[in-house]
Design a protein around this nucleic acid. Sequence first.
DNA 1: GTCTATATACAGATAGAC
DNA 2: GTCTATCTGTATATAGAC
Lengths: 185, 185
Amino acid sequence: MAAAAQVLHQQGVERTTIADIAGAAGVPVGNVYYYFKTKDELVQAALAEHSGYLAELTGELDKLPDPLERLKALIGAWVGQRDVAARYGCPTGTLAVELDKRAEGGMDLEAGKVIRLLLDWVERQFRELGLPDPDDLAIALVGAYQGMSLLANALRDPEIMTREGNRLTRWLDTLPNDGTRGSNS
Amino acid sequence: MAAAAQVLHQQGVERTTIADIAGAAGVPVGNVYYYFKTKDELVQAALAEHSGYLAELTGELDKLPDPLERLKALIGAWVGQRDVAARYGCPTGTLAVELDKRAEGGMDLEAGKVIRLLLDWVERQFRELGLPDPDDLAIALVGAYQGMSLLANALRDPEIMTREGNRLTRWLDTLPNDGTRGSNS
DNA sequence: GTCTATATACAGATAGAC
DNA sequence: GTCTATCTGTATATAGAC
């Protein structure tokens, strides 16, 4: 599953053969088919991997006491992945684009479900901050992440992630404060 | 070329066969190969179509006297395409994702060049407005467009385009004014 | 449960009649 | 310049030995 997630991210779903995944995992092709009946099941497995990574990350962030700090740490994690994003794009975002075209199998919305998990977590943070329209704010933040990942990838420029990350962090600081948290400045 | 642009956008590069494009254009396959030696050349042609559409759009917007109004009209054009974006994504953005994986042929950066054209035009508007860091602002605006297109597509929800479009328009109004243009409020 | 060999299908590309 | 028929490569998936 880890091999599938990595190779599918780097080479894309359509350009990746089962032999590629088998090779990356160090097993022969027939072996892969023993555990995954179709290529689509391997894609599902890769999505589950990304979903697990997301749960792990948000689980860590939830340990931070302040929702605003959690969101800033999330942006920090995104920027920390800037080189991967510039080379291969956001794993879930590029999968969403690829699966949308891959009509057969009805998996076109599976990547959207993982993105939805991230959206819901982000929305929860904005809600805890007492901000109006937390769903719109979540769309704005996650959308900015997907957008900067796509641009960084299309232009092969990791600096885009850094610059947008800084702007987003400043943006978070400009949002109205409901007064229950203290300001350090 | 128009048929190639449309079918490649809707079905994706890898899932589109030459027969699909030939069928959409109403000609047999052999005919397509008379004008385009390889599938990659058809992709190039599709990119040229999107680039032409972009030039047409910005050409129209340039007729507006105020750069701020040009940017707002650009956002309006994006939102006007919300149903297409929700179903198939941004034509250039999804192509960028697909071409990044399609290593062979060295076309991985071609879609990035078209996006660069848009970025440069947007940056020019911000510069005319006398705003600091116009390149960062352009990344933010075009990134937001790519992000909301991807989210709308992944979640199959055109309303995301409308809501983000409204937010971006309000954002433009909050940017510092250099004083050379009048405020109506 | 692991691995090799192969069947099946289909897409990119070409040859050549018209 | 248009179109049909076909070659060729390759990827998914399976059969079956071990």
